[in-house]
C-alpha cells in the first residue's frame, strides 16, 4: 500500500514540483500552504511522513513540528525539515525532526532520505 506524505510549503511551485516528483516515485502526496494547514491535515489523518518548510506565513515549520509532535501518535511520525538556506543546520536535532534538507531541484537526496525513514 502506498505511503502517504504531507508536504507543507508556501511556494506553490515547490509544492507542485515535489508533488509530481514524489507521486512519480509512488507516494500519495497531500499538500499544505502553511504550518497551520499542515497541523490541521495531520490532525484529520496522520500521514506516514511529513515534510515541512521552515519559513512559512501564518505558522512556520518549527511551530508546526512542535504541534504535530503533541498529536496522538505524533511522536512517531517521521518529519523532514527543509529550507532554502542552510543556516539552521546545527540546530535541527533539537527541534526533534528526523532530518534536515536543503531545498534543491535535485530530488535524489530527498528521495533517499524518505525511503530511509519509511523503511525503518
Amino acid at each position: 500500500m502506498s505511503k502517504r506524505i504531507l508536504i507543507a510549503d508556501d511556494e506553490e511551485n515547490i509544492r507542485t514540483l515535489y508533488k509530481i516528483e514524489l507521486e512519480e516515485s509512488g507516494y500519495i502526496v497531500d499538500l499544505a500552504s502553511n504550518g497551520k494547514e499542515a497541523v490541521e491535515k495531520a490532525k484529520e489523518k496522520l500521514p506516514d511522513l511529513i515534510i515541512l518548510d521552515i519559513k512559512m506565513p501564518v505558522m512556520d515549520g518549527i511551530e508546526a513540528l512542535h504541534m504535530i509532535r503533541q498529536l496522538p501518535n505524533g511522536k512517531d511520525v517521521p518529519i523532514i525539515l527543509f529550507t532554502a538556506y542552510g543556516e539552521y543546520q546545527q540546530d535541527f536535532t533539537t527541534w526533534a525532526s528526523d532530518a534536515y534538507i536543503i531545498k534543491s531541484h535535485d530530488m535524489t537526496e530527498l528521495k533517499t532520505k524518505i525511503e530511509e525513514l519509511l523503511n525503518k
Binding site: A84, S104, H105, D106
Partner: peptide, 22 residues
Amino acid sequence: MLTILAHEIRNPLTAIGGFANI
C-alpha cells in the same frame, strides 16, 4: 544580502530546475 537572496531566488530556482528536469 544572501539570506534575502536565497529566500527570494532559491525557491523559484528550485522550481525551475525541478520542472526542467521533469
